[in-house]
Design a protein around this nucleic acid. Structure first.
Lengths: 339, 339
DNA sequence: ATCATCCGAGAGAGCGCTCTCACGAGTCGC
DNA sequence: GCGACTCGTGAGAGCGCTCTCTCGGATGAT
């Protein structure tokens, strides 16, 4: 008398079908080697026949693991999400690495400030084993709160102030320095910059790189206008820059998008690039190859940032002790035609 | 003698602290109204004191719900993920709407074809209550397989062939028709198109719109070069088009990125836009406002596509019967300077 | 005062899984 | 040939929650 298994098959169903115990089936499912080959084989057969798939909720309940990792994009990050290619690139990197490790990616887009509590609640519920945080603003208390909650965290970008959680970042300053050296080597002497927001580490460090680079030019005065990494702010900042000093012969923009904006303003105001004004960006997003002229820029390994974030959080989740407090990836200047 | 609660507080812990039973605490947590106000209050107090957060795994185990929705981006979609602004925009829309409903967004990026099985396994495991699928290619068997697995599914974009699952799409053809009419109204007579891939509905329908629009021009012959929606393909297709017919006075590109590529080729070959050649794109991504000249394009409500996808899947998951088999959102022509 | 009614709250089963522990059978040493 | 091991397997507890069922007590009708 075959009992028709009502819904999805469970371990029990498989066990009965294979004439083994639940424990042994579990062993096979989880790849234990202590099961007699022929028994294992018949269990595998039963699993295939019945189309058995383990119930992750039941498993999580006992293992206290969920095999999923949250990627949190705070409001400040979602703002640039659909324009900038940075976060999509990072997400891809994270997703890819997690897929290899057979972990799930839970995306937490904090669209409003009120999401903050929701995120905390969510993480406290231990629905995820760890958190990758795209922390952007210095004032962000989330990393610390998460750490306090006892959840493994790794952030993208060094936090402002003291770093209390491991992070992945890139060599902002040295990359910018290389750009500045390139500009100076080209004979440029009036080098301005369109900086990023100064409440983000990326904004600050790229500005620091600009200032450091300028020191190679005795007597040169810094010429800074701040943007928000997006295109429109580059357009506007370039206008201000030119108004302040029409004799600018080079500009370093802290993002490719702003560099593109600057290119646009320069063209509109009749400046030739790079003949009159050389332009260098930062990021090396896909679009940088298609600006007019193609953008010389500081390349940062966006995809690798993602894979490294995933790698580190996986190690933390696995309980490894020797996880670096920080990983700083190299940047390099990609010379195209704008400088 | 206070027992120090070892790890996270459970329902039991709260129950003891509040002097109630597990069942009653559960009632309060889940907002049942049949609890005496003072009892409910003391339970709420205990919950706050202990920092109790329900364990979702335990809850899922009994409710058979997970309160999370998967967003699957097949390999073909991840390819354009970091360049095109379409998917990031959709993700934002979906994420936002799901957040409002207090559901989680699980992102499944299928980076390789082998991910197919993994996705199926995952969905079979019922780790998610429903699936939003960015189905792109006609050959994609995933929608059908998911439906067969008994999981609620809604796809972004009408599938090629018979639609077996509900979908959200936009009025491709009529939007393109409006673009064509605009071009013709401008007096253009040699109108070419850079089409999208013909194994995608979006590609096909936009081409159909072009062909339909051309009929208003007696004797006009279609002039089509195919691209893949990305920038480089627009650059290349435009070259081919010009080689085939140097007298082209307008071109409709099936994506903004390809339109931008076309703009680039036209500029390089000394054509003025829109004086010599008018250009219209499709999508109205952020970058369209910043091309040179600013791109006239067919706007599609990217963000709304996302929110609608979320809305529909939530209704399906909730077991509603009267869910539309399709929702087709309007498009409209946004006239800027390129045409 | 008696009984039916109703409402708030507790007891307890059970969701599907993992994992410890115990057990029986075979192997080995002396 | 007997105790000491080893090794594969099964029994059973228990993860934290929901939900049904039951029950005690208060209420209202008669």
């Amino acid at each position: 008398m075959n009992e028709t298994p009502a819904g999805r098959p469970t371990l029990e169903t498989v066990a009965r079908a294979a004439g083994a115990s639940r424990a042994t089936v579990s062993r096979v499912v989880n790849g234990s080697t202590t099961v007699r080959p022929d028994v294992a084989e018949s269990i595998r057969q039963a699993i295939a026949d019945l189309g058995y798939v383990p119930n992750p909720a039941a498993r999580s309940l006992v293992t206290q693991r969920t095999d999923s990792i949250a990627l949190i994009l705070p409001e400040s990050a979602t703002r640039v999400f659909s324009d900038d290619a940075f976060f999509p690139g990072v997400i891809r990197g994270v997703g890819e690495a997690l897929e290899k490790a057979d972990k799930q990616l839970v995306l937490l887009l904090a669209s409003t400030q009120s999401s903050h509590d929701r995120i905390l609640r969510y993480v406290h519920g231990r629905t995820v084993d760890g958190v990758v945080l795209a922390s952007m603003h210095g004032a962000d208390t989330l990393p610390e709160e998460l750490r306090a909650a006892g959840v493994p965290v790794v952030t993208s970008g060094r936090p402002l102030g003291e770093a209390t959680v491991p992070y992945i970042d890139v060599e902002h300053a040295s990359g910018v320095k290389a750009a500045m050296d390139h500009l100076i080597g080209l004979g440029r002497r009036r080098i301005a910059t369109i900086s990023g927001p100064q409440d983000m580490v990326a904004g600050r460090e790229r500005l620091a790189g600009y200032l450091a680079g300028l020191e190679a030019l005795p007597g040169a005065v810094p010429l800074v206008e701040e943007g928000d990494f997006m295109r429109q702010s580059g357009i506007d900042a370039m206008e201000r820059l030119l108004r302040r000093d029409p004799g600018i012969d080079a500009v370093f923009a802290a993002s490719d998008l702003m560099a593109d904006g600057a290119l646009r303003t320069l063209r509109r105001l009749g400046r030739r690039v790079p003949a009159d004004v050389a332009v260098i960006g930062f990021d090396d997003v896909e679009a940088a190859r298609f600006t007019d002229p193609p953008l010389t820029t500081v390349h940062q390994p966006i995809h690798e940032i993602g894979t490294r974030l995933a790698e580190q959080i996986l190690r933390l989740v696995a309980g490894e002790e020797e996880v670096e407090a920080s990983v700083v990836l190299p940047t390099r200047l990609v010379v195209r035609e704008s400088a």
